[in-house]
Design a protein around this nucleic acid. Structure first.
Lengths: 209, 209
DNA sequence: ACTTTAATGTAGTACGCGCTACAGTTGACA
DNA sequence: TGTCAACTGTAGCGCGTACTACATTAAAGT
């Protein structure tokens, strides 16, 4: 009901809520326990955010914590790879970004949101619906920069995104992260052999010819 | 109306509930709307299943509707592939099984359960925790049957499962199923080139097209 | 000093939830 | 036909939920 006149405190609160949600999930989120852990009251949360739905929406819209945004920023910053080795390095960096500790920590929540938006597409609306599509697009355009034909770029991007996503699921349940990383590297090796394989060991520092 | 002691009606009810859950999700499942759509009452559901938790557990344990069980049965029935083409055919059949309409329809629920068990591992306990690990094991042993070295078999299995899973997610949100199928086929082509070509001893990666 | 206004506490409302107590109702069988 | 046990409808309990009405504090502005 009221407008939020103190943006910094609101922002700080929002980040704390984000952390809580990442740790505890979104499906059973309840204002009172949340508020209790933040040392405040449900009354205050509603004061600042008006409604639970709006609160959740804002948590999910915390741009600088969203994996897609990070990946896109990184790819944009790097620009199109100049050679095959550069493409390979970039694809490995995508994996690095997606498996960074905080991104990894937010994956359960991300999956939760995806599952929920499959049943209720209107609920988190544009926030999530096209997440994977966006990833695919970002990767496709990057691959296009390597001179790859478009259909192959799109197919590869679809595969890379799907694999990167699916490969995160297994370790989340059983903790075998190395297997997933190895499988991803294996995929890169075989997907575009011209990119050059790192051949198992990881002494691949950038060697610009 | 009341005729039989139990088991058939209970079973029938259970299958209706399964369908409802597949359509409407599990996170917000509520006995009264569920019962209403089945033309009965919450009272009856609790009469037959005792408690909501037990009801859900039984829904998830409907073995013959679980994708993993189907895949395993199929692979068991087929036995280890006799040649490279057989392996390729089997891997394509895995995809077929995982994208069969009813399996596909149950994917959102499956993802939902996985997300939930990431936050609450005890909730669906052994039902789900090792699902992906089991898939990987099943595929690994199948690939071992082709004479592939163990580490490669495990890596490939991890990759195939991860990709098959991840590739289902994108189309669920945007409906581009052909892209996913194509990407999976692409993966098979490149993962073990020997599968696509004539028998021949499997060789390491080199020139595609 | 007075007024305004943002911030917070207290108590409560209306509702949906899982679940239960109790009272029938029905059908099989003696 | 009467009895018993399986089945089912009705009403409601206790609880947690999002959300609100009202009052109070505290500080800033004039």
């Amino acid at each position: 009901m009221p407008r939020p006149p103190d943006p910094t405190k609101r922002r700080q609160l929002l980040e704390q809520i984000h952390d809580y949600v990442v740790r505890n999930g979104l499906s059973g989120l309840s204002l009172r326990p949340l508020a209790a852990e933040l040392g405040t009251s449900d009354r205050m949360l509603l004061y600042y955010f008006g409604t639970k739905d709006r609160l959740v929406a804002e948590v999910l819209a915390l741009d600088d914590r969203r994996p897609l945004v990070r990946v896109r920023n990184r790819l944009d910053a790097a620009g199109p790879p100049r050679d095959a080795a550069g493409a390979r390095r970039l694809m490995e960096e995508v994996w690095q970004l997606l498996t960074a500790p905080d991104v990894r920590a937010s994956f359960p929540m991300l999956i939760e949101v995806m599952a929920d938006s499959l049943f209720h597409p209107e609920r988190y609306g544009p926030v999530m619906r096209d997440t994977i599509a966006q990833w695919t697009d970002v990767l496709t355009s990057t691959l296009l920069g390597t001179g790859m034909p478009e259909d192959r770029a799109r197919s590869h991007a679809t595969l890379l995104v799907g694999a990167a996503f699916g490969l995160q699921l297994a370790p989340l349940t059983n903790g075998h992260w190395d297997q997933a990383a190895e499988a991803y590297r294996d995929l890169l090796d075989r997907l575009e052999p011209a990119w050059g394989a790192t051949d198992g060991t990881r002494d691949t520092r950038d060697d610009p010819r």
